[in-house]
């Protein structure tokens, strides 16, 4: 940070390069396989870097042509964006109340909310289905959106309340209180701007959790019109395609690429806070 010497700089970049390698290497093998013909994908004659003539987009073509991916990706996008917005609308006031407002029952509510994070979802799938069926939300995008936005809430609330608490150094809060602000004023003027990175992180986590969510979409829908890409690809992975490694890996690439690209792009547009990550 300060007084950088050339040596520490070298150490830094070597460290980062190793990190990048560790992060990317498993992906690379998947990407390579997805770009080969079916037999080249398993043949030991194919090199680490395959010869040009064994490269092919046939795996992608098979996955894309035969399944209705335009719909799946559109659904994924709608659900993820809506769920991110809704969960932030719930969690920002909620987390603030937990972190700062000293109302009776706060702790009890907080601990029960935190407890929900610990609960493995697999144990509540059937009762949750019952609730959504009762509400008439089975097989609808509304239902999926509501489910996902609520199921990411515990983590966003838990994340945000921690930062809201720490967002104010003692002396700043003191100053705010002396100025005659109420706690809510202090929150909006001081805590929230300082917590912008955390809000950004919470939004990012919500979006990605929504995108990658399998269980609730799987449990709450069965029509192809409301299926998301993650569930569609899960089905492909569980089907006969398992015997065709290039197509299988193409499906994996299609599943993984959008959130990774989204994260990469969000770095530029989300602003100061998250840009710092």
């Amino acid at each position: 940070m300060l007084n950088e010497t050339r040596r520490t700089k070298t150490v830094l970049y070597v460290g980062l390069a190793l990190f990048a390698l560790w992060a990317l290497i498993p992906y690379i093998w998947v990407l390579r396989t997805s770009l080969l013909t079916n037999f080249a994908a398993i043949s030991s004659d194919t090199g680490y870097i395959p010869a040009l003539e064994s490269l092919s987009l046939v795996g992608y073509e098979q996955i894309w042509d035969r399944y209705n991916f335009t719909t799946y990706f559109a659904n994924s996008l709608i659900v993820s964006i809506a769920a991110t917005l809704i969960s932030l609308l719930f969690s920002i006031p909620g987390a603030y109340a937990f972190a700062r407002l000293d109302f009776p029952g706060r702790k009890f509510l907080f601990y029960t909310a935190v407890f929900t994070i610990m609960f493995p979802w697999i144990v509540i799938t059937i009762p949750v289905y019952e609730v959504f069926f009762f509400l008439g939300l089975i097989n609808t995008l509304d239902g999926v959106t509501i489910a996902i936005s609520i199921f990411v809430l515990p983590q966003t609330i838990w994340l945000l309340q921690g930062f809201f608490r720490q967002g104010i150094p003692e002396n700043i809060e003191e100053a705010a209180l002396i100025d005659g602000h109420t706690e809510i004023g202090a929150f909006l003027r001081i805590v929230l701007p300082l917590s912008a990175p955390a809000v950004g992180a919470a939004a990012l986590f919500s979006f990605l959790t929504a995108w990658n969510n399998f269980l609730w979409v799987f449990v709450l829908t069965s029509d192809e019109e409301v299926r998301t890409a993650t569930v569609a690809i899960h089905y492909i992975l569980g089907s006969d395609v398992l015997r065709q490694w290039n197509a299988l890996m193409a499906a994996v690439v299609l599943l993984v690429a959008p959130p990774v690209i989204f994260y990469g792009l969000s770095q530029r547009y989300v602003g100061e806070g998250l840009g710092g990550v």
Binding site: L16, A20, Y27, L208, N212, L255, V256, P259, Y263
Partner: peptide
């Protein structure tokens, strides 16, 4: 950071297959 943090953004299911 987009590169280094990227594994987290793959669906856990995909992580298993990868």
């Amino acid at each position: 950071s987009a590169i280094i943090m990227s594994p987290y953004f793959s669906a856990p299911l995909a992580g298993g297959v990868i």
